[in-house]
Design a protein around this nucleic acid. Sequence first.
DNA 1: CCGATTACCTGCACGC
DNA 2: TGCGTGCAGGTAATCG
Length: 296
Amino acid sequence: MPELPEVETVRRGLQPVLEGARLVRVEARRPDLRFPFPKDFSARLTGKTITALGRRAKYLTMHIDGGPVLICHLGMSGSFRIETSDGSDTPGVFHHERSKSAAHDHVVFDVVSAEGARSRVIFNDPRRFGFMLFAEGTPDTHPMLAGLGVEPTGNTLDGVLLASLLEGRRSPLKAALLDQRLIAGLGNIYVSEALWRAGLSPLRESGTIAKAGKKAAGQSERLAGAIRSVIADAIAAGGSSLRDYVQTDGSLGYFQHSFAVYDREGEPCSTPGCGGQIERIVQSGRSTFYCRTCQR
DNA sequence: CCGATTACCTGCACGC
DNA sequence: TGCGTGCAGGTAATCG
């Protein structure tokens, strides 16, 4: 499911409920997801207060007062949902009980806010490619995060930086942009979308847009801008909802309606005056969507 | 250094 | 209706 915009949307959805709240009960309903849950998973969290909910690339970080940092990855199919209690009666009874999702509910976090409101946050992940790990200090140095590249949010990623990242690379742009060691947070959807916005072919050899010269400099600038804009636009739209992916409050992100190429094989290219048709090709075993007419 | 392939796991759309 | 096939937003290991 989730690339950076979806994970950021999840973070923003969970933040009001989790930040400053105390974990009163944590339950892992199976021994593992992609990896085994950390030793003493529940015991090390229960009774502790969550000081902050962060994100790095596609990873969520739950910072625990006087405890570890819980690193969460949603894999392909992971999602969180929030259930709020009545506040009046029957502790443990929650609204929004949806039988549909209960099948793959793997982790349950029961929290109490500083004001005393009880909530339940549930991690659901049918494919179980997600995982949860502890970082003992700052998560940035955890092996899982240490090698990550630049965030495509903000203004850090500019044409000069992107050119330096791509310089000398023989791989196609598609592979380079998917490489989390270079830029951290792009996935299969937003790479296709960014390349279309930049008018660059996913097959293009990465190093060729980084060479000195006016033309290449313009291209790396354009690609950096395209990456930043597509990520910013997707976050503003609440991410993309494919299949049954929903936000923590059950609502849908709507950026999928803004896709120019992803999953649009055979449709006309929407670049003004282009007249081309969106194609689907396979690179590194994964679908790439692009327009060969306007993406060079 | 690079790409392709495989693996992990479940659900769904599709064709027959 | 059922069954086989291929595909799906993730990362990582292995092999040429």
